[in-house]
């Protein structure tokens, strides 16, 4: 489990820091961070993380747009991507799944539950 590397793209400073501490300290994963879509796309292409945790609502480029760009790039299209979203409606969550993301995690979520959900979605239990 140790050598997993996750890219977290999240514009909210507080959430980004908490999730980073949580994934690094509790799960023991390496966490790369980006505060915007453009920074996230560049980091994904350059550093090839094992998975991407992507916020949906961000200024400028939103989560679905970033995901489409990741999919359009042969270098990043294989990277499993999970949406992290404060959207609550079931229909909205279903729309995200239809885009082809690996999973959707709704905020707010407990630290341990977040790690468990990521492990389940990415099949990182073993």
């Amino acid at each position: 489990m140790i050598n997993k590397r996750i890219l977290l793209i999240e514009d909210e400073d507080g959430i980004r820091e908490i999730v980073q501490i949580c994934l690094e300290t509790v799960a023991g994963w390496e966490v790369l961070t980006a505060v915007s879509g453009s920074e996230g796309l560049a980091t994904a292409e350059a550093l090839q993380p094992d998975a991407i945790l992507l916020d949906v609502v961000m200024p400028g480029m939103d989560g679905p747009t970033i995901f489409q760009r990741l999919q359009a790039n042969t270098v990043t299209q294989h990277i499993p991507t999970i949406f992290l979203t404060a959207k609550a409606k079931k229909s909205e969550l279903e729309q995200f799944i239809e885009l082809g993301v690996s999973g959707v995690i709704a905020k707010p979520i407990k630290a341990q539950d977040l790690i468990d959900r990521i492990r389940d979605i990415l099949d990182w239990r073993n």
Binding site: E12, I15, C22, T25, A86, P108, I109, A111
Partner: peptide
Amino acid sequence: TPLTSIHGALSL
């Protein structure tokens, strides 16, 4: 959004 930070922080 702020609830996520609070929830995450407290659970951590």
